[in-house]
Structures are given as structure tokens and as C-alpha cells.
Write a protein that binds this DNA or RNA. Structure first.
Length: 269
DNA sequence: CGCCAGGACGCCC
DNA sequence: GGGCGTCATGGC
């Protein structure tokens, strides 16, 4: 990791990183672009930690008002800087479609998000569009002052959550809160459980089906073998992988999925 | 206005 | 176990 401390900031060089591609590709919903002229700046949060980050030129970043300890201990992990994405993309490039996808948006990184935040966020995401998902999560965080813990939400009913205007998802959120607070579901255990078992556990929560479970595993537990399949990925699989997804990329199928998702959505528009 | 949104549930056969 | 209508809300 090529970085240095300057005043109260961290200056980072990382060529396999782009803010738009990483923060606005549907894996996280709490980042806002607050500036987009000669450089670009995002403000956002990871559970209850806030960050302002600028891309001052290609591959050059400022983490504003971040200490070296915070950077190494928190943000470098969140942005997965301890993983070599050049190496990863080199491996993916054995496959023609993946190679094109990596070339198309080489600055995507898989964010290592909080499992609880992910669970709630992706329950909200079902049959929903990204601007509205962001709005609902905004209202949730505004109400509690930050992203609420399950403990802070203890006992909430769907009616209590009406202010979210999350529609039929309110009862799912209420059930997720209860599952965590009663101990019926333990996210830390699920994070390290065998993947099939982890899937089945997550699906015990109302409103968590195959897609949401897979997103929680991938985005919230960094299970890189998890592979969320939505309409876009179905299209990729049908069009480019009629004989199945390549075996060599299986351990990192979820990261490959991010490149493919972004690729197929943007080349067909 | 109608169609759709990073789906899941409940019911049907 | 697969197929299908339904579920709130609002972006476009």
C-alpha cells in the first residue's frame, strides 16, 4: 500500500481503485458524491464511521482527517486494500468476458461492509430501485442519528417503521431485528460457517431469500465465493457462460460478479 | 400514465 | 419443486 500522512490526511496511490466505480455500483447505499468538478469527492459512512474521500487525479486519493491508525485499521480494510486487485484481475483475464469487464471498470473494489448494515440494506433493496433504497436508509439513519444497531431497534414493529416508507419490507425489517435480538440468528457465527449452512441460516429471516442472503454473504461477510444472481447476472450467464461459470474463478466469483454486473449494465444502455 | 426496481412470500398444482 | 400473482412505494 503506497500512502503517506500529510497534515491530518492520508494520501494514497492506488491504481486499482476508482471512487465512482466502487462507491456507486450498487454494493453500498450510503455514499454521496458531493463534488465532481476537476476532482471528485464522496462523503459516506460505514456503519457508524464517517469518511470524506477525494480522488484528486487518476489513482490518487485523499482520506480527509483520517489518522494513520484509522486508515490502516479501518478504511484500508473496508476498501480491501490488503488484497492485490492487479493479481486478481490478471487471474480473471484468462476468461475473455471477465477480461473485458475488468478492462471496462478496473477501479471496482469489493467493500468489506458490516454484516448487520448489509442485512438491513439488502432487505430494503428487494424489488426496489437504488435512489429509493438510499432514501429509505437515509431516513433510518436520520431517525437514530447513525445506522442503528439491532439493540437500538429492539421491539420495533412494522408500524413503528412506517416513517421509512419502505412498503411491505417493514415487516421484514422488524423480523430481522427480532432474530438478532433473540439470538435466533448470530451473524458472527454465520460469517464463518460453511457457506451452504450460512445461506440456510440467513434465509430463516423473513424477507431474506437466495439473492439477499448471497448479498449479505458477499458484501457484509466478505465471502468472496458468494455469487448473487439477479436479472443482469442471469443475462451474463445465459449470454457468455452457457456451460457454467469458469471453475478457476470460483473462490472469487463474487468479486468477478461485481465486474460483470457493472459491465453488462453499462454496455447495454 | 405505465413500467420497472440488485426479490420474496404464499398459494397453487 | 417450479410457476405465478401479490406485495408498497416512488423513480423514470
Amino acid at each position: 500500500m503506497d500512502y503517506y500522512v500529510k497534515n491530518n490526511d492520508i494520501i494514497l496511490s492506488e491504481k486499482d481503485f476508482n471512487l465512482d466505480e466502487t462507491l456507486d455500483c450498487g454494493q453500498a447505499f450510503r455514499w454521496k458524491k458531493i463534488q465532481s468538478d476537476y476532482n471528485c469527492t464522496y462523503e459516506g459512512s460505514f456503519f457508524n464511521d464517517n469518511l470524506r474521500i477525494s480522488e484528486i487525479s487518476k489513482g490518487q486519493f485523499i482520506f480527509h482527517n483520517v489518522s494513520e491508525d484509522e486508515f490502516l485499521g479501518k478504511w484500508a480494510d473496508y476498501f480491501d486494500f490488503y488484497t492485490d486487485y492487479s493479481q486478481l484481475k490478471a487471474e480473471f483475464s484468462e476468461d475473455e468476458t471477465l477480461s473485458k469487464a475488468c478492462e471496462f471498470a478496473g477501479g471496482i473494489r469489493l467493500l468489506k461492509q458490516n454484516s448487520w448494515e448489509c442485512l438491513i440494506s439488502f432487505i430494503i433493496s428487494q424489488n426496489n430501485n437504488i435512489p429509493r433504497i438510499k432514501g429509505i436508509i437515509d431516513r433510518l439513519c436520520d431517525n437514530y442519528g447513525a445506522f442503528p444497531t439491532a439493540e437500538q431497534m429492539r421491539g420495533v414493529t412494522a408500524d413503528d417503521l412506517a416513517f421509512l416508507r419502505s412498503g411491505f419490507r417493514g415487516k421484514y425489517l422488524s423480523d430481522a431485528v427480532e432474530c438478532i435480538n433473540t439470538g435466533k440468528i448470530n451473524l458472527s457465527d454465520i460469517a464463518v460457517a460453511p457457506i451452504e449452512q450460512a445461506r440456510e441460516e440467513l434465509k430463516k429471516i423473513k424477507g431474506v431469500g437466495p439473492k439477499v442472503a448471497e448479498c449479505v454473504l458477499l458484501f457484509g461477510m466478505h465471502r468472496t465465493e458468494a455469487f448473487p444472481v439477479d436479472v443482469w447476472i442471469k443475462r451474463v450467464l445465459a449470454e457468455y457462460y452457457p456451460n457454467g461459470f469458469p471453475e478457476f474463478a470460483k473462490d472469487n466469483a463474487g468479486i468477478a460478479q461485481q465486474y460483470l454486473f457493472h459491465y453488462i449494465r453499462n454496455i447495454t444502455e
